[in-house]
């Protein structure tokens, strides 16, 4: 209970003078805060200034959740389309994406645009990244496309992996 009270007090005192009176009485019974209390306080404190953490001596947190190691195969993986848009400046459809959890320099990314009873494709090598393979800057000029709604699919293929995105609609003006 006391820790909750103090956490609230810290926020209130930090953020508003108006509530200062409400917490002034707690100062008469101060004990050095426990690590848990300090961590809890930090969880409700503004980040402070760059270079000046709110509590430089904050103890290291315990039980930190981290991203669990994944052990799935890539053969049936997904390509994530992070961006698919009509770029008026270049007059082209531009698609960016990535193949999560795959790092390969031997793969090929393929963009397929379907619409109006036809389809157009372009290819680029995948770029190996820290934790993924990037399929970036796949571009099809507007000259090859008629106005209307097109469906984009970004696929990836390497000697050991195959993956494709779900369809994404792109509007061509």
């Amino acid at each position: 209970m006391r820790s909750s009270y103090k956490a609230a007090c810290l926020v209130a005192c930090t953020l508003t003078l108006a509530s200062a009176a409400a917490c002034s009485s707690s100062s008469t019974e101060e004990q050095p805060p426990s690590d848990a209390e300090r961590l809890a306080a930090a969880a409700t404190a503004a980040p402070g200034e760059y270079g000046s953490p709110v509590d430089p001596s904050l103890p290291a947190p315990t039980d930190v959740a981290t991203d669990a190691p994944l052990v799935g195969t890539v053969a049936e993986g997904t390509v994530v389309v992070s961006s698919a848009l009509w770029n008026g400046a270049t007059a082209a459809v531009e698609v960016d994406g990535l193949v999560p959890d795959v790092i390969e320099s031997s793969g090929t990314c393929t963009l397929t645009l379907s619409g109006d009873g036809t389809s157009v494709t372009t290819e680029r090598p995948g770029t190996p990244d820290a934790t993924s393979t990037a399929c970036a800057s796949l571009s099809i000029p507007g000259a090859d496309l008629s106005p209307g709604t097109w469906t984009a699919v970004l696929s990836y293929e390497s000697p050991v992996s195959t993956a494709a995105s779900s369809p994404v609609e792109v509007e061509i003006p």
């Binding site: 820790s3 961590l39 809890a40 969880a43 409700t44 503004a46 904050l58």
Partner: peptide
């Protein structure tokens, strides 16, 4: 935050 495991205020 409802967890008091300690971190700067993640609302920021």
């Amino acid at each position: 935050p409802t967890n008091s495991a300690g971190a700067a205020d993640l609302r920021y």
